[in-house]
Amino acid sequence: MNHNTPLSPRPLHHLTEAQRRVLTAAQLRAHGVPAAEVNEQCRPGGPWQQMLPGVFLLHPGPPTSEDRLHAVLMYAARGPVQEPPPGVPAQPTARKPHRPVDPEAMITGLAALTLYGFSTAPPLLSLEKIDVLVPRLRRVRSTGFARIVRTAALPVPEPVTGLPVAPVPRALADAVATLADADAVRRLLTEAVRAGHCEPAAVVRELTQARLLSRPHVVDAVDSLLAEGRAIAEDRLYRMVREYRLPDPLWNVDLRLPGGPHLGGLDAYWPEEAVALELDTRAPRQGDRPDEDALWSEYARKREHLERLGITVVHITPRKLRDAMEQQATVVRTALMAAADREPAAHVVVVPR
């Protein structure tokens, strides 16, 4: 066998070209390729090369971005993907040969954002490091272009181009952790919301859990993110009223009792029907009460007070507006129609905000 022969024909000839680009040492052994032959193929000028410890590129030339992604997943995986010997059919429930997918290892950080199509994330081949998320107790270290990111609780990965990828909020937090450029952080967070990848609250929650809100440039970017998210949610609300032909409300008002206390601000109010609508754009911040019940307590108190006065309160999240606008329009319309069957509400003073 000379150095121009890319693969050992006996054990590997049955594999497709895509399958035999990147393999682990264990997978090569399973195909009958001994360590001595691997070392021979990986000699300077040889057709193979070691990409990461125990992970080999089985063709000459530089690795592609796909090769690098597969390599970091294989390196971080708990063990090799086993496959049946040649001629033995795989069981219906068996894992696909050479699929570099470990449910406990997934691409995260900037590489993940690039896979999601972020225009503000760098090209994969320009990344010096590819972040891979693993359980905290996984016994593997960062090396070469593989940067290990540990977590106590793994999220459910999203399949992107056949690879397991961390959800956008988690990937953003892991990317932000590596960035000191305030403009780069702001661009990534803004695109996440503006392009509809996720809601601000989910991003802020991940940044809080990662303890990144102690960094001034991250705090500034989050303020811009929340403002961006609020503007997008309000635009969707206007569009919902227009497209589903709801009666025009009074927009952005405060309610007060005559000569009495302030009752709170509302995003929309239908005075004749005594129906109020409020967008929930709150997001947990460092130092806030972490439990969901506490985060909702402010809204609950306001809602209870208004409903005691006979005002129906409709509570809508930006995510519901994005994913189920028609359903939310039906909720509002139902509340407006039900006004005729309710007792008249207490008189309140409506003041523009």
Score class of each variant (00 low, 15 high):
Leu188Lys: 01
Asn252Glu: 15
Val203Pro: 14
Val168Gly: 10
Pro159Gln: 11
Pro159Arg: 02
Gly196Arg: 09
Thr208Pro: 00
Glu243Asp: 15
Ala192Gln: 07
Val185Tyr: 05
Arg147His: 12
Pro159Leu: 08
Arg186Ile: 01
Val160Gly: 13
Leu154Phe: 11
Pro155Cys: 09
Ser214Tyr: 09
Glu191Asp: 09
Thr161Asp: 15
Gly144Arg: 03
Thr151Lys: 00
Ala184Trp: 00
Leu250Lys: 11
Ala227Arg: 15
Arg236Leu: 12
Met240Gly: 06
Val160Ile: 14
Gly162Cys: 06
Ala177Gln: 14
Val219Tyr: 02
Val160Met: 11
Leu212Ser: 09
Leu255Asn: 12
Val203Asp: 12
Arg211Asp: 14
Ala227Pro: 03
Leu213Thr: 12
Arg187Lys: 14
Asp254Trp: 00
Leu172His: 01
Leu250Arg: 15
Gly259Lys: 03
Pro169Leu: 02
Ala233Leu: 03
Gly260Cys: 09
Leu237Thr: 08
Arg194Pro: 00
Leu246Ile: 10
Arg150Gly: 09
Asp183Arg: 11
Ala202Glu: 15
Cys198Asp: 06
Ala152Val: 03
Ala231Glu: 07
Asp174Pro: 02
Glu243Pro: 01
Arg236Gln: 13
Thr208Arg: 06
Gly265Lys: 00
Pro159Thr: 07
Leu188Ile: 12
Pro258Tyr: 00
Asp248Arg: 15
Arg150Cys: 09
Leu172Thr: 05
Val241Cys: 10
Pro167Phe: 09
Asp220Gly: 10
Gly259Phe: 01
Arg194Gln: 13
Glu158Gly: 00
Arg187Ser: 11
Leu226Thr: 06
Arg245Gln: 13
Trp251His: 10
Leu257Pro: 01
Ala201Thr: 06
His262Pro: 07
Cys198Lys: 05
Arg150Ala: 12
Glu206Ser: 11
Pro200Glu: 01
Ala202Cys: 05
Pro249Lys: 13
Tyr238Asn: 08
Tyr244Gln: 08
Leu154Ala: 06
Leu207Pro: 07
Ala153Ser: 13
Ala233Tyr: 05
Val253Asn: 11
Ala152Thr: 06
Thr208Met: 09
Asp254Asn: 13
Trp251Cys: 12
Thr178Leu: 03
Ala146Glu: 06
Ala231Arg: 11
Val176Glu: 07
Val222Cys: 07
Arg245Met: 04
Leu163Gln: 06
Ala210Met: 03
Arg205Ala: 13
His217Cys: 05
Pro157Leu: 04
Ala171Gly: 08
Thr143Val: 14
Ala180Ile: 08
Met240His: 03
Val168Pro: 02
Tyr244Phe: 15
Leu188Ser: 06
Thr151Gly: 14
Gly144Lys: 01
Pro200Leu: 05
Pro247His: 03
Val156Pro: 00
Arg236His: 04
Glu199Lys: 00
Ala153Gly: 02
Val193Lys: 02
Asp223Gly: 10
Val160Phe: 07
